[in-house]
Design a protein around this nucleic acid. Structure first.
Length: 781
DNA sequence: CTGGGCTGTCATTGC
DNA sequence: TAGCAATGACAGCCC
């Protein structure tokens, strides 16, 4: 329990402090609960970075640099670390730590096009409607779904920049890369790929021959639907009378709808209209030409002949929202809009819609950016110029490019998708502005959590696993695995392994002593030189066996603390380490000093000898001086490092006075404590470095999770578009007993629990939708 | 001269 | 209880 308490208090505290110091707000709970086992282990688990025992296996290495507070490599280490961090910080997702995204390397010049997306770049949900772009507060107003996404991001503990507002360069780059990753991964590409849709259009062409049959079927189905729709006398609610899932065509199974959708135009970007254009036109009159739509939205854009300046102003406003790439596209769109003969917008826009690269771009950008405003800006000219110019020919556009409708009506709530408030308010007499979406229950934002994102991703061809793998490849430069199971302990072990290699590469002699305890002469000398940390300069007199047994820490310690500065000559050779010099010969043994004092065979000048003696004298520690003064018959190194038994045995061999014994015991105590202090400081530093690394890992994970979230949301948006198209297609093909299409303002499709699709009056659908809306509210309360 | 970093040392605690 | 590791606190030294 004590250790656990320690982790919880000190570990968590330190971690929090570190995070706060670097300005990162991490929702620890989020990571603790399920996201990141490593962090949980850090704080709670036995593999805490604060576990002291790990220290012995740790060696801070960074690109081959070992680290110790007193290591001569310290400067190099920190310099390298700082430089490396700077390099890695050159391009990074938001956090100035180690993350190098390889995609930057592969970035091609064209990438800037998509990379410089407008502010709507992270608008992942469906476009929020025309008013979002052309309204007075265009570009500023957040759609409901955008807000939801922001909240989601915050829920992730993300410090992500404002999602819907001004995007930072990093965001744009990230989006750009996400889009590219999609392409690279082949994820959902067919969804965006125009050629793919072209195939579907071909199929559609083939099926158009059978459109008459379909119409007949639709008429029958609608007829049957209407026939079987009962009205509750008390509530006025209408409900289908047929048995759900029956063979009655009033209940259209989802499969049938999907088949129907596939047979026609999944995304409504067909090059040509279906044969039954007119019927569809009639089927969705309120969606296509509501007075409000024209008044509020179309007029600024489409009545160019009347107020060209306003039109231009509108587009300038649009431009101001968007960045370079979108501006590019919009410019082309503008040209189309402006250059189109006023009298013949249909031919111009209609022919252009499916074939111009704009559509492809839009599809791709939708995939990556979900830019609702952009979507709209691209399609609105096509969708809206027609009704004005060609009057009743507005509706034929719908099948040609339902995406335009999507853009117009896009929002998380499909009520807004199909019956935006403006449309409802103007074209629908009964329904209020808050008309619930017939599909709202199915696609409500609340459903986002319930929908299996993974399934969505798979269905969309997006493979998160692939993405993560790819990203791991990108992040491979760090040498750290992004695996969520990556824990401090594993990191420590990896460090340990890498440390041995680094130490061996940096110093062959030290490696023999540090990485192995093999008894060899070289090991002995090296150990006495480094391992004893100032206590064993007399390597000749030091028995390795004694040394090894002297202090349990020693072998490990020598690994970390290769204090080669004990050789003054080395110090002099490394002037930049002078400040590290201090008094590192603290416990240099008198014998070593004596040996140093010995006159060389060839004989040096007396002066130099004296100077050397003085120098070494100064290098002696206080305890060494004391020991010398007290004429202690053995070295301080032995005093300190010998095991207790041997130490006592040694003391017993000599007749020592009480003062001598006291001094010896003090020397031993101080020497051991000195090493302990060094270890302690080393451990502290180690812990900090580990925490820093963990922070980097967490930031990397966070960025990855954000990317994945973007992917998921994108997939979800595509699914919504699919459902939207399906809805429109099915609804447009429904016919009443007289063969006339149903008015979207009066009827709506509703999905039943058993998968069937029912046609119900809008009032009923609205009531049900309101109920569904209340439920979550009540739940919140 | 001062402040910061490094190191050694002491006292204490817990194993 | 002895021995020892760990660690906070402090002081001295050096730059």
């Amino acid at each position: 329990m004590l250790s656990l308490k320690k982790y919880l208090t000190e570990g968590l505290l330190q971690f929090t402090i570190l995070l706060s110091l670097i300005g990162v707000r991490v929702d620890v709970d989020t990571y603790l609960t399920s996201q990141l086992p490593p962090l949980r282990e850090i704080i709670l688990g036995p593999s805490s970075a604060y576990t002291q025992t790990q220290f012995h296996n740790l060696r801070n290495t960074l690109d081959g640099y070992g680290i110790h507070p007193k290591s001569i490599d310290l400067d190099n280490y920190f310099t390298a670390r700082r430089l490396l961090s700077q390099v890695r910080a050159l391009d990074r997702f938001q956090v100035p730590t180690t993350e190098v995204n390889a995609w930057l390397v592969h970035r091609d010049p064209e990438g800037s096009v998509s990379g410089s997306q407008p502010s709507s770049g992270l608008t992942l949900e469906s476009s929020s409607g025309l008013q979002d772009v052309t309204g007075p507060d265009n570009g500023v107003r957040e759609s409901e779904t955008e807000q939801g996404f922001s909240e989601d991001l915050e829920d992730l503990g993300a410090v992500a920049p404002p999602v819907s507002g001004d995007l930072t360069k990093e965001d744009i780059d990230l989006i750009d890369i996400l889009w590219r990753q999609d392409i690279d991964l082949g994820a959902g590409r067919e969804i965006f790929d125009y050629s793919h849709r072209q195939k579907e259009q071909d199929v559609d062409k083939d099926l158009r021959d059978g459109a008459e049959q379909e119409d007949t079927w639709s008429g029958e189905g609608a007829e049957a639907l209407a026939r079987n729709l009962l009205v509750d006398g008390e509530t006025g609610e209408s409900f289908p009378a047929q048995v759900p899932g029956g063979e009655d065509q009033t209940a259209l199974s989802l499969e049938e709808c999907l088949r129907l959708l596939e047979a026609t135009c999944p995304f409504g970007e067909n090059a040509e209209f279906p044969a039954d254009i007119s019927s569809i036109t009639e089927a969705v009159p309120s969606e296509s030409e509501p007075p409000g739509l024209q008044n509020n939205l179309l007029s600024p854009l489409l009545t160019g002949t009347e107020s060209p300046f306003d039109l231009e102003q509108q587009w300038q406003d649009l431009m101001s929202i968007m960045e370079m790439q979108a501006m590019e596209v919009n410019t082309s769109t503008n040209e189309i809009l402006y250059n189109a003969p006023p009298g013949d917008p249909l031919s111009t826009n209609y022919s252009l819609a499916p074939n111009t690269p704009i559509n492809q771009n839009v599809s791709l950008h939708q995939a990556s950016l979900g830019g609702c405003s952009q979507d709209f800006s691209l399609f609105s000219p096509e969708a809206e110029s027609l009704p004005v110019a060609s009057g009743s020919t507005l509706l034929p556009l719908l099948p040609s490019n339902s995406t335009s409708l999507n853009s117009s009506f896009g929002s998380t709530n499909l009520a807004g998708l199909f019956f935006p408030p403006q449309l409802n308010g103007t074209a629908n007499d009964t329904a209020g502005p808050e008309l619930p979406d017939p599909l709202g229950g199915l696609l409500d934002e609340a459903m986002l959590d319930e929908i299996s994102l993974m399934d969505l991703a798979i269905e969309e061809g997006f493979n998160p696993v692939q993405a993560s793998q790819l990203e791991e490849e990108f992040d491979s430069d760090s040498g750290l695995s992004l695996d969520s199971s990556h824990s401090p302990s594993s990191l420590s072990s990896s460090e340990g392994s890498s440390s041995s290699s680094s130490s061996s590469s940096s110093s062959s002699s030290s490696s023999s002593s540090s990485s192995s305890s093999s008894a060899s002469s070289s090991a002995s000398s090296s150990f006495s030189e480094e391992g004893a940390v100032g206590y064993s300069s007399d390597s000749e007199t030091l028995d390795l066996e004694e040394a090894e047994g002297a202090v349990g820490y020693q072998p490990e310690y020598s690994k970390f603390c290769r204090m080669s500065y004990q050789d003054p000559s080395q110090l002099s050779c490394l002037p930049y380490l002078e400040h590290v010099g201090h008094n590192h010969t603290y416990n240099m043994a008198p014998s070593a000093l004596d040996s140093a004092d010995l006159p060389p065979p060839s004989g040096l000048k007396k002066g130099s000898k004296e100077k050397q003696a003085d120098f070494l004298d100064k290098q002696m520690s206080r305890d060494e001086h004391r020991a010398r003064a007290m004429k202690i018959p053995f070295t301080n190194d032995k005093i300190i490092n010998l095991p207790v038994e041997e130490f006592n045995e040694l003391l017993s061999k000599y007749q020592l006075s009480e003062a001598q014994l006291s001094l010896i015991r003090d020397i031993r105590r101080r020497g051991k404590n000195k090493m302990a202090a060094q270890n302690c400081r080393k451990r502290k530093l180690d812990t900090i470095l580990n925490l820093e690394r963990d922070v980097e890992d967490l930031q990397r994970d966070k960025a990855r999770l954000l990317r994945e979230k973007v992917e998921f949301l994108r997939s979800l948006r595509q699914m919504k578009q699919k459902v939207q198209s399906l809805y429109q297609e099915v609804f447009g093909r429904l016919r009443d007993e007289n063969g006339r299409p149903y008015s979207p303002s009066q009827y709506a499709l509703q999905y039943a629990g058993d998968g069937s699709v029912l046609l119900i009056p809008r009032t009923l659908a609205d009531q049900q939708a309101r109920r569904q809306e209340r439920k979550p509210k009540d739940r919140r309360k």
